[in-house]
Deep mutational scan, measured.
Amino acid sequence: RKEMTAACTPRRRIINLTSVLSLQEEINEQGHEVLREMLHNHSFVGCVNPQWALAQHQTKLYLLNTTKLSEELFYQILIYDFANFGVLRLSEPAPLFDLAMLALDSPESGWTEEDGPKEGLAEYIVEFLKKKAEMLADYFSLEIDEEGNLIGLPLLIDNYVPPLEGLPIFILRLATEVNWDEEKECFESLSKECAMFYSIRKQYISEESTLSGQQSEVPGSIPNSWKWTVEHIVYKALRSHILPPKHFTEDGNILQLANLPDLYKVFERC
Rank of each mutant, 00 (worst) to 15 (best):
I200D: 00
E25Q: 10
I151L: 10
V45I: 14
L104A: 05
R201Q: 06
Y62M: 08
L99R: 01
L164K: 09
W228E: 07
F44S: 02
L54W: 03
E134N: 07
E3A: 10
P162T: 00
P162C: 02
E143Q: 13
P219I: 12
G46N: 15
R239S: 04
F140W: 15
D158G: 10
L142G: 01
K236I: 02
D138Q: 04
G116I: 06
K60S: 13
L153D: 01
A100F: 04
F44E: 02
N149Y: 07
V20M: 06
A83R: 04
L156V: 05
N149P: 00
P117N: 11
V266A: 12
A7L: 08
F85N: 04
V178R: 01
L243P: 01
F82V: 05
M101L: 15
L174W: 01
S199D: 02
Y160S: 01
E185C: 09
G166C: 03
Y198S: 02
P93L: 04
C270P: 12
F187A: 03
H232C: 06
G46Q: 15
G120C: 09
E183I: 02
T5G: 05
V178T: 06
F85T: 09
I27F: 03
N65L: 00
R36Y: 07
L260A: 12
K130N: 14
L88M: 15
K131S: 12
M135F: 05
L142M: 09
S109A: 14
P107G: 13
I27K: 03
D98P: 11
E29Q: 09
E147A: 08
G86T: 15
E33G: 14
H40L: 10
P168L: 01
W111P: 04
H57I: 09
E37C: 11
A103Y: 03
M101N: 08
P154R: 00
L136R: 01
A103C: 05
A175C: 11
L102S: 15
I15A: 06
Q214I: 09
F97E: 08
A175R: 04
Y235N: 01
F128M: 14
W228T: 07
L243E: 11
K265P: 14
P162Y: 00
I15C: 14
Q215V: 15
D262Q: 09
Q76V: 01
E29K: 10
E165R: 10
S225L: 08
H42A: 12
T59Y: 07
W226M: 02
D145I: 02
R89H: 12
F248N: 01
K265S: 11
Q214K: 08
L243V: 11
Y235S: 02
G116R: 06
E71A: 07
D262G: 10
G148C: 10
T112D: 09
Q51C: 07
I205E: 04
R11D: 07
S109N: 14
L136F: 04
L211W: 14
I151D: 06
D98W: 07
K265Q: 14
T229L: 06
S191T: 09
Y264N: 15
E26C: 11
Y139R: 03
M135A: 04
E29V: 07
I205S: 05
S225W: 05
H32C: 14
E217H: 09
I169E: 14
Y160V: 01
E108K: 08
N65D: 15
P245A: 04
L63F: 05
E177C: 06
K132E: 05
I222K: 13
M4K: 05
S221F: 11
L35D: 04
I77E: 02
I171A: 05
G86R: 05
P107R: 11
W111Q: 04
A55I: 09
K68F: 08
G213M: 14
E177A: 07
S91R: 12
G252E: 15
E119P: 12
E114K: 09
P117V: 07
E217P: 08
K184W: 04
I242C: 15
S91W: 08
P219A: 13
H241C: 05
L39E: 00
D181N: 11
P93R: 10
H40T: 14
K184Q: 15
L104Q: 03
P107S: 12
S189E: 13
I79E: 02
A100L: 10
Q214W: 07
S141F: 02
E92I: 09
P168T: 00
Y139M: 05
I27T: 06
L96I: 13
H232Q: 06
L167W: 03
E92L: 06
T229I: 10
P223H: 11
F82C: 06
E114Y: 08
P244D: 01
Y264T: 15
F267W: 10
G31E: 15
E72C: 13
T176G: 05
A175S: 07
A94S: 14
M135Y: 04
K131G: 13
Y160P: 02
I157A: 03
L172V: 10
R11T: 10
T112F: 07
M101H: 07
D138F: 05
F44W: 07
L104R: 02
N49P: 00
K2H: 15
E185H: 08
K192F: 06
Q215K: 11
T229A: 11
L99H: 06
R11W: 13
K130E: 12
L260D: 13
E146K: 11
P93F: 04
W52G: 02
G110P: 12
L150Q: 01
E143C: 05
E193V: 08
G166D: 05
A53P: 01
T9E: 10
L17W: 06
R173K: 12
S191K: 01
V161E: 14
C8Y: 10
A83F: 01
F187G: 03
S106W: 11
M4C: 12
I151H: 12
N149T: 12
N259P: 06
G213C: 14
G31M: 06
E37W: 06
D105K: 12
L21C: 09
T112E: 13
E177D: 10
D115S: 09
A237P: 00
Q30I: 15
M4D: 07
N84T: 04
P50R: 04
M135W: 05
M38L: 13
D158V: 11
T229Y: 03
E231C: 03
S206C: 14
S141H: 04
Y80T: 13
S225Q: 09
E25V: 10
I242M: 12
T249C: 10
I200M: 13
I15T: 07
V234P: 00
I171D: 01
Q203E: 13
C194H: 05
T9Q: 09
V230P: 00
I171N: 02
T67L: 01
Q203I: 12
C270G: 15
Y198Q: 01
L190A: 05
T112C: 15
S109M: 09
A7I: 06
V45W: 04
P10G: 05
P50E: 14
Y62H: 03
K2T: 14
S216Q: 13
S43Y: 14
F197A: 00
E268C: 05
P244N: 01
A7H: 06
S106A: 10
S221C: 13
E114L: 10
C186S: 03
Y264Q: 15
L153G: 00
S91A: 15
T249K: 15
Y235D: 01
M196C: 14
G152P: 00
L23M: 06
A103Q: 02
P244V: 05
V178Q: 00
C47M: 05
L35C: 08
S221A: 14
L260W: 06
N259D: 14
